[in-house]
Amino acid sequence: DDEVHVRQKVAELNPLEVASFDQELRAVVQESMEQRKLELRGRPTLNMMIPMNVFEGSIKDHHGRVVGGESGDEALDEEAGGSREVQVKVLVKRGNKQQTKQMYIPRDCTLVQSTKQKEAAEFEE
C-alpha cells in the first residue's frame, strides 16, 4: 500500500550526449564485426546440435493454452483477455550439454511474429 506519486522532472537527454553514445555504440559493433572477419579465415562449420525433444509441443500462452499449433484458435485466446506474451523454449549450452528454459516473450516480438505468420500461412494451405 506504499503508493507514492512523485512529480518527476522529465529526464531531458542531451542530444549531443545521445549522438556521441550512438556513435560509440556503432563503432563497437563495427569493430566487433571486423575483428570476427579477421579471426575466422576459412568457412565456419555448422555445429548446431539440436536435441530432438525440444520440438515437442508448441507455443503456449501464459495460461498454458496452446496457441496456434493444432487448434490454432486465436480468437478464443483474444476473447479470454488475450495474453500479450507467449512462451518459448530458449536453447542454451552448458559446456557440451544442451538445456532448454521456458521464457515468455512479447507477442509483438519479431521472433514469434514470424513464426505465427508462417503458422497462419501453413494453416491456410
Binding site: 559493433v29 532448454t100 513464426t115
Partner: peptide, 22 residues
C-alpha cells in the same frame, strides 16, 4: 554486440546466434 536470437521456423524454440559468421 554480435549476438541475436533466431527461432525455428515452425516451433517455439529460440537460440542465440552470432551475426558473423554463423
Amino acid at each position: 554486440f554480435l549476438l541475436g536470437f533466431i527461432s525455428a521456423k515452425t516451433e517455439s524454440v529460440v537460440v542465440l546466434l552470432c551475426r558473423e559468421p554463423c
